[in-house]
């Protein structure tokens, strides 16, 4: 027994070193489990608050750019107004359905909630965005996030208190599905960690017709994003030699360098759909 104490005393520094290293490695490996337990309340709220204060200063330098992007978003919305379109034939009489089942609110599937981007990075291999604002309390993990011009930015991974953490598209574990607007082929997005704003679309068969400048949109195959949101434009088409697939490099529609505001996308069907999927998964096990 005495020898053990002597040993510990003699190599105390080295043992402390080992313990701290193992603790760090444990945090890296068990990131997710730890994440839910402890990170939620303390660390996230503190860093969130610091980021928010800093962002208040930084926001002033971005005002001009933010304004420009809002003007553009407004333009798109104005162009969708009903009063911009003439009726095709004024002679036909419009019939009004008297059964009042059809109301707008009843069929609303998607709600956009505005939030403020408090922290954002593009330089690491796994980037996260932090959102704050009044709407954060309504957010849930698994919701999609779009920028001011309705281009995809990422998916919410965690919400606690006044802050929501979003896994950016610029994250090595971020895999959402994308679709070619022209042909309709669906593939999976990934980021190689190299250039911010350049992503890869995988699993597109070589039979697809793709050219530089083609639009890539969300597929709508999950409840995270509605169909037809802008993802980006094709930059380069590479043919994989081993498989029958293309590897398409594309430029993201969202500019990750200067995110100021973001919209969280609340899908009312998300919960029932996920319930069914979970049930199926359980049955298969």
């Amino acid at each position: 027994m005495r020898n053990i104490f002597l040993f510990i005393r003699r190599y105390f520094n080295f043992l402390t070193f080992l313990v701290l290293q193992v603790l760090s490695l444990y945090l890296i490996v068990h990131y997710n489990r730890y994440h839910e337990a402890m990170f939620d309340n303390t660390a996230n709220n503190i860093t969130g608050k610091v980021n928010e204060q800093y962002n208040k200063v930084e926001y002033y330098f971005q005002l001009k750019r933010t304004n420009d992007s809002l003007i553009k978003a407004n333009e798109v919305l104005y162009n969708k107004l009903k009063s911009n379109f003439d009726l095709p034939d004024s002679a036909t009489r419009t019939q009004v359905d008297t059964i009042k089942i059809d109301s707008l609110t009843q069929y609303r599937k998607i709600t956009y909630l505005h939030t403020k981007v408090v922290s954002n990075s593009v330089s690491t291999p796994s980037n996260y965005i932090v959102l704050s604002g009044d709407n954060v309390k309504k957010l849930k993990a698994g919701m999609g996030v779009a920028d001011a011009n309705n281009a995809v930015v990422g998916i919410i991974t965690e919400v606690n208190g006044n802050y929501a953490v979003v896994m950016s598209l610029l994250h090595k574990d971020s895999h959402i599905s994308g679709k070619l607007l022209k042909g309709g082929e669906v593939g999976t997005l990934s980021w190689d960690g190299k250039q911010p704003n350049i992503l890869t679309l995988n699993n597109i068969p070589k039979s697809a017709k793709v050219a530089k400048g083609d639009t890539i949109i969300t597929s709508g195959l999950s409840t995270t994003f509605p169909k037809g949101m802008m993802l980006g434009r094709v930059e380069e088409v590479l043919a994989e030699t081993a498989t029958n697939n293309f590897k398409i490099k594309f430029h993201t529609a969202a500019n990750f360098y200067n995110l100021e505001f973001a919209y969280a996308i609340m899908n009312d069907q998300q919960e029932p759909v996920n319930k069914i999927l979970d049930k199926l998964k359980k049955q298969q096990q």
Partner: peptide, 9 residues
């Protein structure tokens, strides 16, 4: 690490 949301590294 807390600021970068990837504890441990």
């Amino acid at each position: 690490d807390s600021f970068r949301h990837q504890p441990g590294f």
